[in-house]
Design a protein around this nucleic acid. Structure first.
Lengths: 197, 197
DNA sequence: GTCTATACGCGGATAGAC
DNA sequence: GTCTATCCGCGTATAGAC
């Protein structure tokens, strides 16, 4: 896993960088969430993983939900980086192309991490009402759909993001190496969007 | 919700039909799982929903996991029905076509039910090692992929099932009526598989 | 066959000492 | 920043009433 914990929602928008103690908790939580799911991970497991007591963890984050938000936010920050790169492209077509490439890279690179987290119903339900998350996702969908807003654009955008996120943790592809999975996913995603190979 | 609780894994393969008390529990559990997730649903909530005590529920199913399996199995049985209809088709191409249509119908009809359940990490992890489930999924993938077994076939199959299941519970399409969502999903799924409209 | 009563252990959470 | 101690709710489990 990466040794850095990205802060979500762009520079200055979040609560600032985490303390070393908080960073240790987030990294341990990410590993455990990816392996056992959010609901299957107890604070005791997190505490044991870094060698402290449960109450010490609670001192850093007031609730388990805060840990979940920090962990998911760290993954979301990676998505936001991809979005910012895409938004810097000169044309909408090139922005879409770069975004799809980056999202596929991210999904494959962090396989069970990114998708287990963002697919977890606990996280899905929380972020559905979380404004900063909604804004990041709004930027992502805007790049994917262009200015179209009807069902003709929203259904394919929903399918594509679900397809990429869901495919990487699918049992059918569990034994594929990263590079094979990456190139196949990218090819199919481009085809789905009618982008040139 | 339907008033019947399908029994999973085909006639004679399961533990047989459920008692009325068990059926009430399964139906209540399906509703609650869809709304709060598996991890967010307690036996107390299920008991309250049908007006009995926690211990009464526990008497019908020895563990919460058994309730989860029964509830997920009821949804899985609907998928199996679609698979059986597809397998009865005369050609592989027509089987694929019918299966995609039925799966889209099912996903839309039961929206937050089917997908919340089958997307829940608790269920995913359990069924990953559950042989009857794996066999049903194996039949589904075989119809989708034909006899191909390489990554060229497995990645698109993984993407398509993830896309359909994930799209119906996606926030982007939450406000679409069922018929619009159904026709869009079916059109795009067919296009993804290079099937004629 | 269905239910009530009761108890145990674990996970989430808080208060206050070092 | 970490600890001990404690509380509450939930999942698990057993005994026994109707």
């Amino acid at each position: 896993m990466s040794s850095t914990v990205p802060v979500a929602y762009g520079p200055g928008a979040g609560p600032g960088p985490y303390t070393p103690a908080q960073t240790r908790i987030i990294e341990a939580a990410l590993d455990l969430f990816a392996e056992h799911g959010v609901g299957g991970t107890s604070l005791q497991m997190i505490a044991d993983a870094i060698g402290v007591t449960k109450a010490a963890v609670y001192h850093q984050f007031k609730t388990k939900e805060e840990i979940v938000v920090a962990a998911a936010g760290a993954e979301l920050a990676r998505v936001e980086t991809a979005i910012e790169a895409a938004e810097a492209e000169p044309t909408p077509a090139r922005a879409r192309d770069l975004l799809v490439t980056r999202i596929v890279d991210l999904a494959v690179e962090r396989r069970r991490m990114e998708s287990t987290l963002l697919g977890d119903p606990v996280i899905v339900r929380f972020f559905a009402h979380h404004e900063p998350f909604r804004q990041v996702m709004g930027r992502l969908y805007r790049i994917l759909m262009g200015d179209a807003r009807g069902s003709d654009a929203r259904v394919p955008a929903a399918m594509l993001t679900a397809a990429i996120g869901g495919a990487v943790m699918h049992p059918l592809v569990a034994d594929l190496d990263d590079e094979t999975l990456r190139s196949q996913l990218l090819h199919l995603a481009r085809r789905f969007l009618d982008l040139p190979d």
